[in-house]
Every structure is written in structure tokens, then in C-alpha cells.
Design a binder for these strands. Structure first.
Length: 804
RNA sequence: GCCGGGGUGGCGGAAUUGGUAGACGCGCACGACUCAAAAUCGUGUGAAGCAAUUCAUGCGGGUUCGAUUCCCGCCCCCGGCACCA
């Protein structure tokens, strides 16, 4: 019989579903629970090659973990709300609901075709009211606990998508999704207080088993800085300006202060003659977008207020300026400028002719003339502190000027309001008498009304504003007419806790039952892309910390371990895109080569964390390998082959057991490429032997093949006469004794260069090794007329003769 | 600019408590089978050289008996961040 994947794969997929190898009970006696989490797909379209890559390789791990005796759940769901899905629907002229549902049902088919053992009983869809009810519930609880608030802030407004974007969603001053230039608008928004957890989010990273780049990205995004708050009194005005600085050591070099245009003291310290000009400057600054500000990095603008402050370190009178390179949202919105030791202050001082006083002398070099000195050194021009190392002087100086220790973060609160249709309604009510009121918990879910006209509005109002019947209600407090909030939630809210729901997806009374959460959470391993290093991962960590803070969870980090997958590029080594015409259609490929080939090919392409480019010839090689396995088993299953010798038998066992060890270790480490090459080595050595193999060896080979090529393994397994599925089998144990080497090639080096090798039994002594080396013809010639200086012997590896 | 990841044959990639560089696969070449081709199987395959041997892990130094692996100084590619005081 010939290997025909299309004939066998569907059959087994149905069978597995029937016998439920993929659905995990909440508890199995004697087995440890393990929820293998992989990022759920976003339903703006169908699955592309990248999804197939991630899902099929994670499935290899899921199947392997089951075989090692764990109670594994490998759940999946669909992230279906949000702006990109809505935009795609509009483009395709379909209602977002119809569009996403259509995508979901197609994606489900695709997911089954890979042969992935997803735990369908736990499926989660974020557009299900029974799901987003808990978005609303979490929102209300956070509101009650002061973690959600409403504020009028300068928000990023995308004029094309007609909605506010979170800071994280703005890329180079443009909308991350559509590329349109983002404007600044002052809008009242619902905000989540992620900054409350800034320090926990920062410190919590340390204990996580995450890829280094992901950890660093988190820390950078949070941007923790330790520094001091220092007061500068203002001349002739009975008031002070507080600045935040991380460089208290340089305060003797502070030659001016700068306030952000939004600073509350601006009005008070503006001298009468300058009022007009300053007003104009502030207005202009407000109009600027982030992009324009960024373009000014090397050409700073600013204006003198006419007032002076007193430097508390040396009592010197220094001018106070206003400039928009100082951000109102960071620190105190005011800085002390030390142009001699800060690039930005240097640029500003040079442009406006302000004084530059160096206060740090570099150790072994001259102070640079045309740029600030940013390194460490000895203090100069610093009163009684001169001569100290600048780092050591920090604390002392801050004490002297009575600075207060303070820590600041780059992280900003999370704006979650979106003026778009396709999202979770925010469960708040506005009454002109009573103000903002939360919706009652018993009324949840507040369902998203079915709107015919769901297109965004131009004036920045949510389309839900048109749902008059839905919007207009009675105030729950005074019973007078009131209105619902018509904004919807950022879709990142949906995806920041979805994994909790996997523990108990149908629960009507809670986002998930406590006991069930305890059984599955926190997530031991989360597989996903590095594009989520900041947003998704930080939001999820935040929501979990918030639920923990409010007493709903007893852990505060959702993902103990995280592994990132690489990207699959087109055959031309470029990112796949329709415009480049290098897109590989995974469905076509499965049809042609079968799911097993595709899975194995993805595994073989390179390290999981690296990805690689699609190469049709490489896929061919894998199909060829699977064919070789198939044909080998067809021969073995046939009767009438002669028995094999004892020596051959040993070799067969040895290569098998080496593979059992190697493949197990490699799959655990997500190193599928080397796992597969080890399987190839095993078959290569097997095919050198002729005759009838032992049943146990043939079966063990299929067992270790089964996570990688599940359909073929099952087919051959059953063809050998087994009735129970191979995917209920245990991972075979290898024997140390069988894989241990008895002989090895002793490497003989002269001056560190390999000159000869000699087959040698394991464990020989240095003296024996020396003897072997000196008797070696090649070595004799090389060292005959030279003096031996030294001999280095590495047990069971090499001997190195150093001659002069 | 700052932060991160990477650079090994014609290609994807193996190998690190410093110890045989190039496992495994692709491609290529030759051979077998075939009327022929495809498929399959076998042999070879880093470069130079008839050979002994020499050179070779981005470049230049260093440490070491020995460096893809450690240290110093550069170059290039990819990704992220970007006035955060």
C-alpha cells in the first residue's frame, strides 16, 4: 500500500475527536494538570501560514506532554471584537458579526485539518455575550475599587478609524492599524489605572521564565527611574517649583529651569511684558502632534518666562523657560537643566545662548567642547562637594538641598474607550443629575445592539449613539431620563484575561470558578509572538494583578513561562504579503502534502524561536522521509523475513534509545528541528539492517514519531495490530545502558591540531592514552625531533601533545 | 541615538561548563533501475592541492595547549523604542 495522507488523515482526525483524546477533564487522578496556552487567533481573516506554524508545533508539545503522563489541556478560542475585524468587515461589505462568525467557522475547519488536538470543549469566543459579560463585570469591579476612572486627556485620535488609540497603538505618530497620522484631541475617556501596578509589573518580571527580549521590553516599556524631587524657589514670588531628576549630583550645573507648556505655574510666573508671546507659544505647542514634536528633537523650541529661580545648591539666580520638549505627563512637568551633562539641555542651551557649567571631570580625558559629557567622573565647580566621585556625591548632595527620593515611570494609564461599534459596551450610565453611575451587576451583560448602520461617525461619537432605544434609559438612581455610555472597550481588554475563561468556559455566575482556576492557573507555558512583548503581555499581567488586588485571584502573574515563535517568511525570504505575491496558502499545501508533512516541515525548518523561510524543496525532503518510514513499515509488517543478528539488534536498539532521549528533550525545549534530525538518524541506521525487526522496537519508534506525525503513526500503529490509539500511549523510556558508548575515537592532537584518531574503549587512563598516541605512526613522525613540553588529557575525548 | 537578536558550506541549519567545525536535510554531481523520463536506491559533496598538507564559523586584535564558544575594538543585517529629565 502506498502512503496517501489525504486518505488517512481525515479518518484519524474524526476518530480522535470521537475518543476525546483532546478534551481534558479538570482532574485526573495521579496526573498533573498542564494548560498549554497558545495565543488565540484574531478573526479579521483566516489562518495564515504563521498560525499553522505556531499551532502545529505547539500541538507536538501538547501530544508529547500527554504521553509523559500529564493531564494536558490545549485550548483555543477566537479573539473577534475590535477595530481591525470591523474594518475588514466594512471592506468586505458585511456586518462585523457576520464577517467574524464566517471567519471563525472557516478557521475552525483549518485548525482541525492540522490534526491539532485542541480542547474544543473549552472554546472561547470574545463576541459571545456570555464572555464579554465578564469584560463588563471586571470593568465594574475595577471602577468600584478605583482602578477605572474617567478623565479628559489629550488622546491619540485617528481621523481615519475615527477613534481614540492607546499610546501603545501609535507607531511613529501614526495609527498602528491603518497608518493614518494620529491627531491629538482632548476627549473624556475611561482609563484603567495600570500605573498603580507599575512597580509590581516592573519587579514581577524578574521571577518569570520568559525570553530575555520579552523581559527587557516589559521593563523598558514601564521605564522605571529612581531619582529625587527637588524644590527651586522662585524669585519675588512666594512659591516653589518642584522638579524630578535622576541626576541630583549635577545640580551645581543646573543653569536654568524648564516647564512644560501645560505646567500649572506658567501663568503665575509669566512676567507681564511676555504674556502675549507665551500665550502664543503655548497654543502652538498644544496644536502639535507627537510626530511634529518628534521631528523637533534636534531643533528645540522654547520661550523665556521673565522669571528666575534660585538654585538651592549654590543660591545662584537661574532663568525659568517654557519648552515643549519637557513633557507634562512625566515627573513633575518641570526640569532642572544641566546642559553640560545632558544632550537635550545642551541642544537647548546652545540654541538660546544659555550658560553651560561643567560639574563633572572625566577621568582620563578632556571635557569635550562640542557636546555634553555623559559619563562618570569627579565633581568640579560643586562647592564643598568638588573632588567627590559623582556617583557617591548623589546622596550627599540631595541631603544638602533636602531633595526627596522619588521613583517615576514611563508607563501611562490605559485609555480603553473606543468610539467604534465592534466591541464590548462599557457598562456605565450618565445622568445629568446624578453623574456617572455604574450599571447594576445583575443587568449584565449589556448586549451590543444589532445596528444596521455601524459605520463610525465623523464627529468622534460612537455609532452606538444612534441606537436610541438602547441608549436612552432611566437613571437607576433618580429614575429621570439618562443615557448609556456609547463607547466600547479596546479589544485588548477582551484578550487580557481570556485564558482564565478556559478553566471554566460556560460558567454563568463567575468569569471562572475558583476551584477550577486553581486547577489550571497560573499558565505554566504561553506560546506566542514577540510582537506582543509589550501590549498584550503587559495588559494581561495588569488585569491579573488587578483581579488579585481585588481579591478574586490568589496569584498575580498569569504566565510563568513564555516562549516566542519566529516568523515564517516567503520563499523569497521576505515577509509574506499579497502585494509581493509570495503568500503560501496553508490549505493548498496540506491538500498536496498532508498535515503530517507540513507539521514536520515546520518543525524542521529551523529553531522554533527563529522561524524561517518557506522552501518547497525542504517540504519535499520531509515528505520523502515520511514515505521512507511508511515503506519501511510496509515491509516489516509483511511476513516471511529472516531474523536479524544479535549485533544488528544491538545497533537497532541503540539508535532507537538515543532518539527516545534526544527527541524527548528536544520537544520539551521546543527544538523540533534537532528532534526530527535525530529521528532521521535513527531510520538511516535502521535501514542499513536487513531482516525482521522486533515488534517492541517498531512500536517504540512509532511512539516517538506520534507527536510529530500523528496520523501516520496512528495508521501504522493500528496496521501492526494495535486497537487502542497510539496517542493514549506512554512516552517510551530509554535505557542508559543501551545508549552508553563502549568505544570512542580518541582524538590525538599535536599543538592543539587534530593529527590522528584511534578507536579506544571508554574509560582508558592517561598513561594508556599516551601510549596509544606515541605508537601512532603519524604522531611519531610529527614529534620525533621535538621536545615535549606538556601533555593535556581530557578523559574519553582527546589527548593533546604540546611540543616546542 | 538607545535597547535587543543575529552573522557558520551553494542553501536551511548542527555543535558552547572552551576539546574532532559543518550532524540532519535541501541542492548539485556521478552511478544503478528504465526504451526514456519521473520516482526510488547507492556513492560523493566547505575551499585550494596529485598528495602530504594548508586555509576556513562577519572583520581586526587578545587570552589559552586548544576559541564558532571567553575578552577588547569594529563592520553588516533584522526587530523594538524613541525628547521619560
Amino acid at each position: 500500500m502506498k502512503y496517501n495522507p489525504s486518505k488517512i488523515e481525515k479518518k484519524w482526525q474524526k476518530h480522535w475527536e470521537k475518543i476525546k483524546i483532546n478534551s481534558a477533564k479538570d482532574e485526573v487522578k495521579g496526573k498533573k494538570n498542564f494548560m498549554l496556552l497558545v495565543e488565540f487567533p484574531y478573526s479579521s481573516g483566516n489562518l495564515h501560514v504563521g498560525h499553522w506554524y505556531t499551532y502545529s508545533l505547539s500541538d507536538i508539545l501538547a501530544r508529547y506532554l500527554r504521553m509523559t503522563g500529564k493531564n494536558v489541556s490545549y485550548p483555543i478560542g477566537f479573539d473577534a471584537f475590535g477595530l481591525p475585524a470591523e474594518n475588514a468587515a466594512i471592506k468586505n461589505n458585511l456586518h462585523p458579526s457576520d464577517w467574524t462568525k464566517k471567519n471563525i467557522s472557516y478557521m475552525k475547519e483549518q485548525l482541525k485539518r492540522i490534526g491539532a488536538t485542541f480542547d474544543w470543549n473549552r472554546e472561547v469566543q470574545t463576541i459571545n455575550p456570555q464572555y464579554y459579560k465578564w469584560n463588563q463585570w471586571i470593568f465594574l469591579k475595577m471602577y468600584e475599587n478605583g482602578l477605572v476612572y474617567r478623565d479628559k486627556t489629550k488622546a491619540n485620535w485617528c481621523p481615519k478609524d475615527k477613534t481614540v488609540l492607546a499610546n501603545e497603538q501609535v507607531v511613529n505618530g501614526c495609527c498602528e492599524r491603518c497608518g493614518e497620522r494620529v491627531e491629538q484631541r482632548n476627549i473624556e475617556q475611561w482609563m484603567m489605572k495600570i500605573t498603580k501596578f507599575a512597580d509590581e509589573l516592573f519587579e514581577g518580571v524578574n521571577q518569570l521564565d520568559w525570553p530575555r527580549p520579552a523581559k527587557i521590553a516589559q521593563r523598558n516599556w514601564i521605564g522605571k527611574s529612581d531619582g529625587f524631587l527637588i524644590n527651586f524657589s522662585v524669585e519675588n514670588i512666594n512659591d516653589k517649583i518642584e522638579v524630578f531628576t535622576t541626576r541630583a549630583d549635577t545640580i551645581f550645573g543646573a543653569t536654568y529651569l524648564v516647564l512644560s507648556p501645560e505646567h500649572p505655574m506658567v501663568e503665575k510666573i509669566t512676567s507681564d511684558g511676555r504674556r502675549q508671546a507665551i500665550k502664543k507659544y503655548i497654543q502652538e505647542a498644544k496644536r502639535k502632534t507627537d510626530l511634529e514634536r518628534q521631528q523637533e528633537i534636534n531643533n528645540k523650541t522654547g520661550i523665556f518666562t521673565g522669571s528666575y529661580a534660585i538654585n538651592p545648591a549654590n543660591r545662584k539666580k537661574i532663568p525659568i523657560w517654557i519648552a515643549d520638549y519637557v513633557l507634562s505627563s512625566y515627573g513633575t512637568g518641570a526640569i532642572m537643566a544641566v546642559p553640560a551633562h545632558d544632550q537635550r539641555d545642551w541642544d537647548f542651551a546652545k540654541k538660546f545662548g544659555l550658560e553651560i557649567i561643567p560639574v563633572i571631570q572625566p577621568k582620563d580625558e578632556e571635557l569635550p567642547r562640542n557636546k555634553p559629557f555623559l559619563g562618570e567622573g569627579q565633581l568640579i565647580n560643586s562647592g564643598s562637594f568638588s573632588g567627590l566621585e559623582n556617583k557617591i556625591a548623589m546622596e550627599k548632595i540631595s541631603l544638602f538641598i533636602s531633595g526627596k527620593k522619588s521613583t517615576d515611570y514611563r508607563l501611562r494609564d490605559w485609555i480603553i474607550s473606543r468610539q467604534r461599534y465592534w466591541g464590548t459596551p462599557i457598562p456605565m450610565i450618565f445622568c445629568s443629575k446624578c453623574g456617572w453611575l455604574p450599571e447594576k451587576e445583575k443587568n449584565l451583560p449589556i448586549k451590543l445592539p444589532d445596528l444596521k448602520n455601524y459605520l463610525p461617525t465623523d464627529e468622534g461619537k460612537s455609532p452606538l449613539d444612534r441606537a436610541e432605544n438602547w441608549k436612552n434609559i432611566k437613571c437607576p438612581n433618580c429614575n429621570e431620563p439618562a443615557e448609556r455610555e456609547t463607547d466600547t472597550m479596546d479589544t485588548f481588554v477582551d484578550s487580557s484575561w481570556y485564558f482564565l475563561r478556559y478553566a471554566d468556559p460556560k460558567n454563568k455566575n463567575k468569569f471562572a470558578d475558583n476551584k477550577k482556576i486553581k486547577k489550571w492557573m497560573p499558565i505554566p507555558l504561553y506560546v506566542g509572538g514577540s510582537e506582543h512583548n509589550t501590549m498584550h503581555l503587559i495588559y494581561s499581567r495588569f488585569i491579573i494583578k488587578a483581579l488579585n488586588y481585588m481579591g478574586y485571584l490568589d496569584f498575580d502573574e498569569p504566565f510563568l513561562a513564555r516562549r516566542a515563535h519566529g516568523m515564517i517568511l516567503g520563499p523569497d525570504n521576505q515577509k509574506m504579503s499579497k502585494s509581493k505575491g509570495n503568500v503560501i496558502d496553508p490549505d493548498e499545501e496540506v491538500k498536496k502534502s498532508g498535515a503530517d508533512s507540513i507539521r514536520m516541515y515546520f518543525g524542521f525548518i529551523g529553531p522554533f524561536s527563529q522561524g524561517g523561510s518557506w522552501n518547497p524543496q525542504g517540504l519535499n525532503g520531509i515528505s520523502r522521509f515520511l514515505n521512507r518510514i511508511w515503506n519501511f513499515y510496509q515491509e516489516q509488517i509483511q511476513e516471511g523475513q529472516k531474523p536479524i543478528s544479535k549485533k544488528d539488534e544491538e545497533e537497532i536498539k541503540k539508535s532507537l534509545h538515543l532518539s527516545i532521549k534526544k527527541i524527548g528533550e528536544d520537544i520539551e525545549n521546543l527544538e523540533f528541528n534537532t528532534a526530527i534530525s535525530s529521528l532521521m538518524e535513527c531510520l538511516n541506521s535502521w535501514q542499513k539492517v536487513e531482516g525482521k525487526f522486533k515488534k517492541i522496537d517498531l512500536e517504540n519508534f512509532l511512539r516517538i514519531l506520534s507527536p510529530l506525525a500523528p496520523h501516520m503513526a496512528e495508521e501504522l500503529w493500528q496496521a501492526m495490530g494495535n486497537k487502542k490509539s497510539i496517542h493514549l500511549e506512554k512516552w517510551p523510556k530509554y535505557s542508559e545502558k543501551i545508549i552508553s558508548r563502549k568505544n570512542f575515537d580518541l582524538v590525538i592532537q599535536v599543538n592543539g591540531k587534530v593529527r590522528s584518531k584511534s578507536p579506544t574503549p571508554i574509560g582508558i587512563s592517561e598513561d594508556e592514552a599516551k601510549k596509544l598516541a606515541f605508537e601512532d605512526g603519524k604522531i611519531k613522525k610529527l614529534i620525533s625531533d621535538k621536545k615535549i613540553k606538556k601533555i593535556i588529557f581530557i578523559k574519553d575525548k582527546l589527548i593533546n601533545i604540546v611540543v616546542g
